[in-house]
């Protein structure tokens, strides 16, 4: 890794990445909808590549609020971590949205860990799987793990895998059962993975748009 030569994605590459993320999220929404047997709207207003510190700042905010995350590791041509992150205060809301029904407060609390794991798993799988598929690469993705902590904790997990200083930050917005929940998907990539991603995006753009841009 060479932190002094950060890799930047071109505007076109970023557009391509955003399109891929949208595809993945659509897939995730479909999977989620099938799971909860309800319409699920997942939208991605923005995708950004930011430094780790900025990501910590963006997610934690000035109040250093408590967060909950579903964490999965992916391995393949690209290695890294994927995190679906919500404010801690919203996690029960998410569970309630997913579970539905008139479950009591205690029931919701009891279900929280598993429900978060599975929901996060569905979303991350849908998103990552779709992206990997579109990039014609295969990824092995681990089982989900629920984490609680502040943003700095979530971005400083012990390796492996080595996580670089670049974070692909995906803002997502859920709308399930009349509940609106905002969250993030964060992908921590090390430098070689980011380089691979850049190459893969270039290949993807070439495939999709022909040789127009290159």
């Amino acid at each position: 890794m060479n932190a002094s030569t950060p890799i930047h994605l071109s505007e076109l590459e970023l557009d391509a990445l955003t399109e891929l993320v949208n595809l993945g999220i659509s897939q995730a929404a479909g999977d989620l909808a099938m799971m909860v047997r309800q319409e699920v709207v997942l939208s991605v207003p923005r995708v950004a590549l930011v430094g780790r510190d900025e990501a910590i700042h963006v997610l934690g905010g000035a109040e250093r609020k408590d967060l909950v995350a579903v964490h999965q590791v992916f391995e393949g041509d690209i290695i890294g971590r994927a995190l679906l992150i919500f404010p801690e205060a919203k996690s029960l809301e998410l569970v309630r949205a997913v579970v539905g029904g008139d479950l009591s407060f205690e029931d919701i609390i009891e279900l929280e860990q598993e429900a978060l794991s599975e929901t996060g798993n569905v979303i991350l799988n849908g998103c990552l799987g779709t992206i990997a598929n579109e990039l014609e690469r295969s990824l092995k993705i681990s089982l989900p793990e629920v984490l609680h902590g502040q943003s700095a904790d979530l971005f400083e997990l012990d390796p492996p895998p080595e996580s670089g200083d670049t974070v692909m930050l995906i803002y997502i917005h859920f709308a399930v059962r009349e509940r609106d929940i905002d969250g993030h998907i964060a992908m921590l990539l090390d430098m070689p993975s980011l380089a691979v991603l850049k190459d893969l995006l270039t290949a993807y753009i070439r495939r999709v748009a022909g040789d127009v841009q290159t």
Partner: peptide
Amino acid sequence: ITRGLSGLLTHAL
């Protein structure tokens, strides 16, 4: 099978 993804299905849901 097709994408190498790990899936979790819980009794909770």
